[in-house]
Design a protein around this nucleic acid. Sequence first.
DNA 1: ATAAAGTGTACTTTTGTAGTACGGATTTGA
DNA 2: TCAAATCCGTACTACAAAAGTACACTTTAT
Lengths: 140, 140
Amino acid sequence: MIKLSKMTDYAVVILAEMATRDGQLLSAAGLASHTRLPEPTVSKILKLLTKNMIISSKRGINGGYSLVKAPAEIDMASVITALDGPIALAACVEASPECCDYADNCKIKGHWNPVNIAMQQALERVSLAQMINNKGCPNE
Amino acid sequence: MIKLSKMTDYAVVILAEMATRDGQLLSAAGLASHTRLPEPTVSKILKLLTKNMIISSKRGINGGYSLVKAPAEIDMASVITALDGPIALAACVEASPECCDYADNCKIKGHWNPVNIAMQQALERVSLAQMINNKGCPNE
DNA sequence: ATAAAGTGTACTTTTGTAGTACGGATTTGA
DNA sequence: TCAAATCCGTACTACAAAAGTACACTTTAT
């Protein structure tokens, strides 16, 4: 299975929680208890989201985190890139400094690129708002 | 990074090698030496590809593997599914028997589904032939 | 019957993720 | 100005999944 890291999964849960309290400044501890996720993990995720400008932070007493964009403007490609790095299926992509070790024998040099681009575009089309509005568990 | 397993990467290299010798019956050992990949690994991959009807095998002396479809008819979604299982980004998808442990607090229950479908479709549109024809290393 | 080839299972090693811990920096308010 | 609450950064440990390896079994042509 092409896996998304758990961290990214958690990140979306946290962002969804923040979206329902738009404008409020929320502490890491508060978000952890609301989402029932371990606090250190939540902190780590919030830090990464902050570094990637998806949320903003305020330090000191009464500090906390808040969304900088509307949920409809936050796309999944940004969130995944923030947590897992660039969206790429294989090591052998355009960004890598050189061809892989098997370059001479490899008949598909760097050609995951079209696939990677297609996936990137697919993820850019899904917003946080869309994921929240899509209600209910499909198994119920 | 959203990772594809190395096995899948190898699988495409092996299939590309087979495509250039269309019709020939090739042994696991032969494919291993042509691709410079470890032989046991190549065997494991060929076995999985056979089970998923992407290639066919012939046993006994002078046996080997061959493609059952033209390279243009082999899509990446099939190859990835053969090696890594169903294409799905998160554990919390339609196929899973129940909602995740955080179901009660989770505001995005099972909503990676639209993303998964978009990715599946993107991968179905890329054929083995396309990946082979796309020549040269982008860094050269 | 034997050798060459695919098949299946189980084990070991390696790698990367997830989780944890702790000390530091920043801001507010008394 | 001090203390408390909060964010920030780094390093370490534990666990799980992937990758690689080994080996015994089955099939088939000669």
